[in-house]
Every structure is written in structure tokens, then in C-alpha cells.
Amino acid sequence: MKYREVARKLKALNCQELPRRAGGSHRKWFNPNTQQSSVLPDWGNRDLKVGTLRSALRQLGIDWDVFNKT
């Protein structure tokens, strides 16, 4: 799954992308429901690894099944 698809789903789940303070290929996300944050790589057209995505969702307090149904 590409970063844009993940970002669209996270926004639908009420998560917010925090403003970037510097350059780089990673973006920080915040879940206001759980008060938790995580970092996701933005590799453009390259797919994110499933383990990386699942780990970030776990850190945000989002269930994998809920994320896939969004």
C-alpha cells in the first residue's frame, strides 16, 4: 500500500498529520482519540512494508481490521 492510500485512510479515522519541521522522507501522525503518535515513511510510489504499517498503526492505537475496512 502506498503512502497516499495510508494517509487517506488515517485521515478518515480522524488522525492528523503533524507539520514537518525539517526535510526528510518521514511524516509524523497523531491520533487525538488515543493521544498517541507515530512516524511513517513517505516513499512516494514505493509500497510501505506491511510490518512497518502494522507497527505504526499499533503505535497509533488503531486496530488492523478497522484500518482495512476504512
Results as ranks from 00 to 15, higher is better:
M1E: 06
K2Q: 06
K2L: 07
R4C: 09
E5W: 04
A7G: 09
A7T: 06
A7W: 09
R8D: 14
K9W: 09
L13N: 06
C15S: 00
Q16F: 00
E17H: 10
P19M: 05
R21S: 09
R21I: 04
R21V: 00
A22M: 07
G23N: 11
G24F: 07
G24V: 01
S25N: 12
H26E: 12
R27K: 15
R27C: 14
K28T: 10
W29Q: 04
F30S: 02
F30A: 03
N31P: 02
N31W: 04
N31M: 00
N31S: 02
P32Y: 02
P32S: 00
T34N: 07
Q35A: 08
S37V: 01
V39W: 15
L40S: 11
P41V: 04
D42R: 06
W43G: 10
W43R: 15
G44P: 03
N45H: 08
N45A: 08
N45G: 07
R46I: 03
R46Y: 05
D47V: 00
D47A: 06
L48C: 02
L48K: 03
T52C: 10
L53Y: 09
L53M: 09
R54L: 12
R54M: 12
R54K: 13
S55I: 04
A56Q: 04
L57W: 05
Q59H: 07
L60P: 01
G61M: 00
D63K: 06
D63L: 01
D63P: 00
D63M: 03
V66H: 14
V66D: 13
F67R: 07
N68E: 15
N68H: 15
N68L: 15
